Simulated assay, not measured.
Amino acid sequence: MDATDLSFLRANLEEAHYVSGSILIEPHQKTEYVYFPYNCVVSIINTVSGGSTVEVGTIGNEGMAGLQIFLDADAVPSRTLVQVAGEMARLRADKFRELADRSAGCRKFLNRYTLAFLAQVSQTATCNRAHTIDERCARWLLMTHDRVTSDTFNLTHEFLAFMLGVRRAGVTVAAGILQKAGLITYKRGNITVLDRKGLEEASCDCYQIVRTEFERLLETQMKSRIG
């Protein structure tokens, strides 16, 4: 972005702290804002008949929530909420459209980010069908770890089960396997990543496939705390 675009953002962004569980975008309702996480993590959730839920997309400081505005749509059938608490900025939808319409650099990034995010969503669907709960849990923890600024983040069993679309008992077993292997600790809703490399080895290959695609399309090295 050039200096004019940055000045526009500084004048129109609204920054705030968001707690876990905060609803940003409701399904089938008009999207009023787009959101840019700084150190929090945002999830896109689908709900099926009977009330079961599963996360289909994860967003952190590599991207934005509310991509439908860029795609000229006002509403989507999914719910967008804060997964891990932290700081985030929001921009009114009309201001975002104004910026995207006039900035070639912004449009280029958003086109590439859209492709990367679609790759994540499609790989998540594959992962949910093909891999075990403990592999999926490891993948999810890695994706979250990439997007926060600490090795420790707050997450309850209930919320992790909500994200993975499984029963709490399944999450308890999966987290126990990872903890027994010395990869994480899990106490009172706080997860600490102890062995990043080991966690990658415990995950399915979906994590690396998505990460590689983001780095290729966005031409940037995603943050890593390996070693």
Rank of each mutant, 00 (worst) to 15 (best):
H145R: 08
T156R: 05
T144Y: 05
T156C: 06
M163A: 13
A138E: 06
H145M: 06
F159R: 15
R139K: 09
L160V: 02
H157Q: 08
F159D: 08
L155T: 05
C137R: 03
L142V: 02
M163L: 15
R136E: 08
L155A: 14
N154K: 09
L155I: 15
T156Q: 05
R147G: 01
S150M: 04
S150H: 11
T152N: 05
E135S: 11
E158M: 05
T152M: 06
A161N: 04
T144H: 01
V148R: 00
R139W: 10
T144F: 11
M163F: 07
A138R: 00
L164F: 10
T152D: 01
R139V: 14
W140F: 14
N154R: 11
L155S: 10
E135F: 03
L155H: 00
T152A: 15
D151P: 06
W140S: 13
R139E: 15
L142M: 07
T152W: 07
F159Q: 14
T149Y: 03
D151R: 13
F159A: 11
E135K: 15
T144M: 10
L142E: 08
L141M: 11
S150F: 03
D146L: 12
C137G: 05
F162S: 07
F162W: 15
L141A: 01
E158H: 12
R136A: 09
T152C: 13
R147W: 10
V148E: 08
R136I: 06
E135Y: 11
L164R: 06
T149C: 03
W140A: 09
D146M: 11
H145E: 13
T156S: 15
V148P: 02
L155V: 10
A161L: 06
L160R: 02
H157F: 12
T149A: 14
T149E: 11
L141R: 04
R147I: 03
F162G: 01
H157C: 04
L142Q: 05
R147D: 10
R136N: 14
L160T: 07
R139I: 00
M143Y: 10
E135M: 13
R147C: 09
D146R: 12
L141Q: 02
M143R: 08
F159P: 02
T156A: 09
T156M: 03
C137P: 06
M163T: 09
L164A: 09
R147V: 01
A161G: 09
T144K: 07
L160E: 02
L141T: 02
L160W: 00
L155C: 07
F159L: 11
V148N: 01
F159M: 13
A161Y: 05
D151C: 08
A138I: 00
H157T: 04
D151Q: 08
T149Q: 09
A138L: 07
H157P: 00
T144S: 00
L141F: 12
C137Q: 00
R136P: 00
E158F: 08
L160C: 13
H157N: 07
S150G: 10
L164M: 11
T149I: 05
A161R: 04
D146E: 15
D146Q: 14
R136H: 11
E158L: 05
E158D: 13
C137N: 00
L164E: 03
